[in-house]
């Protein structure tokens, strides 16, 4: 890697202008992802860390997180620790070691679509949306993760918007040691209306790009919840995905884990939802 220029833009407009004027330009936030990209032809780097994008604000209906907020800021922020039982803080805490959490930003982590980002699972069940510069275009995280062309060349994710809701949300990461990458991670969310399940979301990741399992969600939606019903939703999660084998575990083991953990997580979400 041989870099010609390193820019420190003062605002987003300037950053975008530099991007257009220079070939082979890349934006850099925390910069940790660069380490693995030995073959990229990077000539110009545009540093976004000086643009004051590291805010965390709770507004009336939305939680807004600047894309430059470091993962550790999500762990430390009292606002986020109290948001839906702290599901975002918990998932950010497991992503990496403290030193890496101090460097990596939420925007960078999501934009690079790493399957190791446990955070994405939690954000999927929270219905997170990305605000993009210029034009303040808004796309859902789910669409972004599925569509590799969702972000056009030169566009910058500037904010993560999460709607406020009262629901039971839960996040589980299955790993071998404190800093291990997830064998499986998953998040669930249940919103009750009296005893009817008004809203349910299941997201799974760790070995794949994090995704929602809608077939399983449909089993629970608008139903009166019971343990049996949750069991069959969990079985559906096992049946609706292609699980992979790697040096850690076999595909069958991973599938069994997904079923058991989905059940556990749904039951916990259900308990939490009842308390709301």
């Amino acid at each position: 890697m041989k870099i010609k220029n390193y820019f420190y833009p003062k605002n987003l407009k300037e950053a975008s202008l530099i991007f257009q004027e220079n070939e082979e330009s890349y934006y850099i936030a925390g910069g940790t992802y660069l380490n693995g990209l030995k073959n990229l032809k990077i000539q110009n780097l545009i540093d976004l860390s000086g643009l004051n994008l590291n805010y965390i604000q709770l507004e009336k209906n939305f939680l807004k997180i600047g894309s430059g907020a470091a993962l550790q800021e999500l762990v430390d922020s009292p606002i986020i620790c109290q948001f839906l039982g702290g599901i975002i803080s918990i998932s950010a805490l497991g992503c990496a070691a403290l030193q890496l959490r101090n460097m990596a930003t939420i925007g960078g982590a999501l934009v690079t679509r790493g399957s190791w980002i446990d955070l994405a699972c939690a954000l999927l069940v929270l219905d997170a949306k990305l605000k993009i510069f210029p034009e303040d275009k808004i796309i859902s995280l789910e669409d972004y993760l599925l569509d590799k062309k969702a972000l056009k060349t030169g566009e910058i994710v500037i904010e993560i918007i999460i709607p406020c809701t009262s629901a039971g949300a839960n996040f589980i990461k299955f790993k071998r040691t404190a800093l291990d990458l997830a064998i499986i991670n998953l998040a669930t969310l249940i919103k009750l209306d009296n005893s009817i399940c008004k809203e349910v979301k299941i997201a799974l990741g760790g070995f794949t790009i994090p995704l929602r399992i809608k077939e399983a969600e449909n089993i629970l939606k608008s139903q009166v919840l019971s343990e049996n019903l949750i069991n069959s939703a969990a079985e559906k999660v096992g049946g609706s995905l292609k699980f992979i084998s790697d040096f850690k575990v076999s595909a069958d083991y991973r599938k069994d884990l997904a079923v058991i953990l989905t059940k556990e997580s749904l039951l916990l979400s259900w308990e939490k939802a009842k308390c709301n």
Binding site: Y6, Y8, I28, G31, T32, L34, N35, G36, L45, D47, S49, Q72, A96, A97, L98, Q99, L100, N102, M103, L179
Partner: peptide, 29 residues
């Protein structure tokens, strides 16, 4: 390790512990 796993390159940057092996020099400006 040079890849942000082992922590032997830890330094304190603006009051926070970080891995200096993942940090490009211009980021310290």
């Amino acid at each position: 390790c040079g890849s942000g796993n082992c922590g032997t390159c830890t330094i304190i940057l603006d009051g926070k512990a970080i891995y200096s092996c993942l940090l490009l020099a211009p980021q310290v400006q």
